[in-house]
């Protein structure tokens, strides 16, 4: 039995949302990327925190990222409902009510920021709070529905985790962590525009001004290629500036060249090719690229530390 507020409706709406539905609100796939990049930022820092506190800090960052995902799903439920990729999310599917998702996101935001502040430091907590605000308010509520540059500026939110990880360990922000930020920041537009190319119908139906349905596919393909030319050298920066070894430098050059190659294939993709194989291939490769770059940087740091080398 459940005690409910008196209502004039015959039907009393009681939730059938399970814990799994709430977990889905956190966008676990995005969260896994946040955890990985924050972890790399933290491990790369010169001061190593106690392992238990490091794990708790990563969990708090993950929870903050998840909270911003829940707030995003709350605000975007109307457009999620008309897009094939997102129609089965908990709110448009009717499993979680919007108000429940909003409360969940707000409580989890506060909890994650306070935990990081108390157990790590308040610089990291402030950066996490800013990231949640940037993703939920600046990107979701403002940019996403108003400009095709939404993902360019909004991408900053997804790029902050390595800086937060570094700040949680050291209490400061460094050039190294800013370079890791830049890699994700420049990676985001070509990654999402590749997706938008083969899902442009979805975005158009939802009224989201993504680059392909505002500037056209040809312009989007050119911009993807330009970004690939930017991200390839930025990926090499940790070696060029002496923060990583030649081994990392070689891996980043190969991965960057691959990015440019896949972006080139998208650039020269025939306009009548509606299968968009090149765009799908770039989308898949971009995920591999980001994981590869961060894994290579992590391996470089750990090997360098084990053998007492740095920037060789």
């Amino acid at each position: 039995m459940a005690l409910v507020e008196p209502t004039h409706n015959e039907e009393v709406q009681l939730s059938e949302a399970t814990a799994g539905d709430y977990l889905e609100l956190l966008k676990p796939r995005v969260m896994s990327l946040v955890v990985f990049t924050a972890f790399v930022g933290m491990v790369a820092a010169p001061i190593l925190p106690h392992p238990f506190l490091a794990v708790v800090a990563i969990l708090a960052i993950a929870a903050g990222a998840g909270a911003s995902g829940a707030l995003n799903m709350w605000y975007d439920a109307d457009i999620d409902a008309v897009m094939s990729r997102t129609a089965s999310r908990p709110i448009p599917a009717g499993r979680v009510k919007p108000g429940e998702a909003l409360s969940f996101g707000l409580v989890l935001s506060a909890l994650s920021v306070m935990t990081l502040g108390v157990l790590a430091n308040w610089l990291a907590a402030s950066l996490l709070a800013f990231t949640i605000f940037f993703y939920a308010v600046v990107y979701t509520m403002w940019l996403k529905r108003s400009t095709p540059q939404n993902i360019v500026i909004g991408g900053a939110a997804g790029a902050f985790p390595p800086i937060i990880g570094w700040a949680a360990a050291t209490g400061a922000v460094s050039i190294e962590s800013v370079i890791l930020f830049l890699i994700i920041f420049l990676w985001t537009p070509p990654h999402f525009w590749a997706l938008a190319l083969f899902k442009s119908g979805d975005y158009e139906r939802a009224g989201v001004p993504m680059m392909p349905n505002v500037a056209g596919e040809a312009s989007t393909r050119r911009q993807i290629f330009v970004y690939s030319l930017l991200i390839a050298p930025v990926g090499v920066l940790p070696w060029a500036l002496g923060y990583a070894s030649l081994g990392y430098g070689l891996v980043s050059v190969v991965l960057g060249a691959g990015f440019v190659w896949y972006a080139w294939k998208v650039l020269v993709m025939p306009a009548e090719d509606r299968t968009m194989k090149a765009a799908k291939a770039l989308f898949g490769y971009s995920l591999l690229y980001l994981f590869g770059i961060f894994a290579a940087f992590l391996a470089d740091v750990l090997i360098g530390r084990a053998f007492g080398l740095a920037g060789i």
Binding site: V4, A17, T18, G20
Partner: peptide, 23 residues
Amino acid sequence: VMEQDRVPLTEAQKKARRSRSLA
């Protein structure tokens, strides 16, 4: 009066509430 304010939960609602409470 209190009894009137209560509604019986379906099995799905009970299961979902238990899942949320455990989490």
